[in-house]
Design a protein around this nucleic acid. Sequence first.
DNA 1: AAAGTTTATTGTCTTTAAAGCAATAATGAG
DNA 2: CTCATTATTGCTTTAAAGACAATAAACTTT
Lengths: 300, 300
Amino acid sequence: MDQLRALRYFATVAEAGSFSGAAKQFDVPASSVSRRVSDLEAYLGAQLIHRTTRTVQLTEVGLQYLTQIKPLLSALKQSDDAVRAYQTEPQGMLKISSMVGFGERVLIPLLDEFNQTYENIRLDVELSDAVTRVDKDDVDIAIRGGFAPDQRVVAIKLMDNEFIPAASSAYLAEHGVPQSTRQLSRHRGLFFKTPTGPTHWYTELDGQWQDVSGDKILVSNNGRWLIRQAEAGKGIVMLPHWVLAESFARGTLVPLKFPEPLSITQNQPMGVYLIYQKLRYHIPKVKALVDFLSARLRQV
Amino acid sequence: MDQLRALRYFATVAEAGSFSGAAKQFDVPASSVSRRVSDLEAYLGAQLIHRTTRTVQLTEVGLQYLTQIKPLLSALKQSDDAVRAYQTEPQGMLKISSMVGFGERVLIPLLDEFNQTYENIRLDVELSDAVTRVDKDDVDIAIRGGFAPDQRVVAIKLMDNEFIPAASSAYLAEHGVPQSTRQLSRHRGLFFKTPTGPTHWYTELDGQWQDVSGDKILVSNNGRWLIRQAEAGKGIVMLPHWVLAESFARGTLVPLKFPEPLSITQNQPMGVYLIYQKLRYHIPKVKALVDFLSARLRQV
DNA sequence: AAAGTTTATTGTCTTTAAAGCAATAATGAG
DNA sequence: CTCATTATTGCTTTAAAGACAATAAACTTT
């Protein structure tokens, strides 16, 4: 028995004071209403409504029961509506996890702006280079550098994440400007460390990828420190262009150019990916941020 | 969609953390649970549970929804149980309507006793000789003198209600003891008035019913007054035996005997009837009183 | 007092929804 | 990498609700 339907019929019969009247409201035959209410009575083992062909009257239990279930029916409706509203209006707690460097330099300024537009969305931002999994770690949106995401999440490439080499003019003056990636291995290196270990300098020579990493003067997962050391002429640093952009603008670092390809990976082109769960039904708060960031950053 | 069932499935899946686990509890295939929850999600337009083949996790809305509906489910169960308990244990307000005379003399003493046995039943007793209708006037039990009840109520004959004539010794000494009903019409009469009018004295003479009512000295619907007047020697009174029993015991009145039948009606034998509604499901409070009164009073 | 009308119910058939079952896909453990 | 567990999907069976006509009861009206 669909008790909920029976309850709705019963309540309407009680209000309308008639089975046929209730039937009209639901647009079903009166016999259906009659049967459903009878089912309910059988289920409860009590007569809720005393009826003649002409009058319909609640029994004492009927009235008691009606009084109790009416608030339940409306509460259920409210809960249903709340879920639907949740889908409509962006709101709730939005948990974001981002790589530290990107988070500090790019994401946080954008989130300040985002916050002003969507005041009902509260943010929980964690900056970490650890591999958070969007499906396990209770995170709505993750931003990670790397390449291919896995199959059960949606990944949007926000921007290129190509690591480019740079050094200070002073360093280059002292150690010489390398003309080929082949010469890099003789240089001093300031290495960025990812959760899977220090990055390497890979280059493609004669159709073969090979490691041309320099001396490991310094290894750190803190991009700012690496940059300060590079600016101090300690060595060559290899970081994403958006990390170095500021130093290039100030002239404290200069990019190194090579005829050969140079990268920190031998495989796919690097990128900054926005990752979120593949949900069948869009969650507005997630959609809001995805759309927002895409509009600002996305590159095809 | 049977939303209630879907809700129960959903809540159990959330608690068990697994579809198959929930399915076991309901003893249905896991596919059913899966489908019902999916139906619910489609109905709400939101994903409530994020699932892989290995883990089941509530979404934010899912948790919100669960928190809201769980109290509703248990409240509904409570209401259902309350109705069933109501059927099981006699309780509630029991409305009784009784003829005045019977109420005062017979019913009320019995109800005092009844009250001690069933403390959860609260009584609402109205004494009136008006024709209350058990199906319209919101009365659970009615006690009426008369004969056949109508077809949609249950009537139990509690006791005989034969009206018998009586007078005081003083009256009889002064006016003579009537030897035949034929002589009654020359006597002074104290008449009980029913809602349909004053009673008459009918007798059967030579196979014919005829009216042998005496002079209407006094007409009243108040039996006590009639008795007081009769005891004062004002005339002959005709009342049910259970009304006169006390006066007979004290010797203030004596019954009159006749060879011919004497009655206040030409039809069926009179009786005191207990009347209640024909309900499909027994209401314990009603059954309790019916059984109680029957045990004390019922005559076959 | 009798006919007529409205209303709830019941019987039977049709339609719809849920259960059951086997097979598939995918995820985490050993 | 293999294996076992788990959710899902396609298909069939079973149960429940809807539709519709017919019946019975209870007021109203003539």
